[in-house]
């Protein structure tokens, strides 16, 4: 476990989550309501943003530090691209709160599922490398 990558990720995630909270208040003031009434999933989405950003940072560290990028493995490049896209989606969730947050957040979980699938496949085939293709 790389604690530096974890702490950096958690700090970045908290920044993103504060952005989300600030955006929610702006929107709620515009409609003259309190945020919990307008965004009923905010109790999950705010901690998700912290967790997901930390996971993104850690996934990038895994992709780079375990040699996938240096070896130009396609599986590693796909993982990196998916992670970057997920981060953009999560920034969008944070800065433009809508009532479709839950669906967007689920879609942005694709890189984690992808990396875990690679991991399970690597363990099952005894390949000892996450970058199977």
């Amino acid at each position: 476990m790389n604690w530096v990558a974890l702490l950096v990720g958690v700090a970045a995630g908290m920044a993103v989550a504060f952005g989300r909270v600030y955006a929610e208040r702006l929107v709620a003031r515009y409609f003259g309501l309190v945020p919990p009434l307008l965004f009923k999933h905010r109790d999950v989405v705010v901690p998700f943003l912290v967790l997901a950003t930390a996971a993104n940072v850690y996934a990038i560290w895994i992709t780079v530090a375990y040699g996938g990028i240096a070896a130009w493995r396609l599986s590693a490049l796909i993982g990196l691209a998916l992670t970057a896209a997920a981060q953009l989606v999560q920034l969008h969730i944070a800065l433009r709160p809508t009532n479709r947050d839950l669906q967007l957040a689920l879609i942005s979980c694709t890189p984690y599922v992808y990396l875990f699938a690679l991991y399970v496949a690597a363990l099952a085939t005894g390949r000892y490398s996450l970058w199977l293709f």
Binding site: F48, A54, A59, C109, F116
Partner: peptide, 12 residues
């Protein structure tokens, strides 16, 4: 939403 991001840490 709270479970899927932890998969990355499970790998590590």
């Amino acid at each position: 939403l709270l479970f899927l991001p932890t998969l990355v840490f499970i790998i590590a």
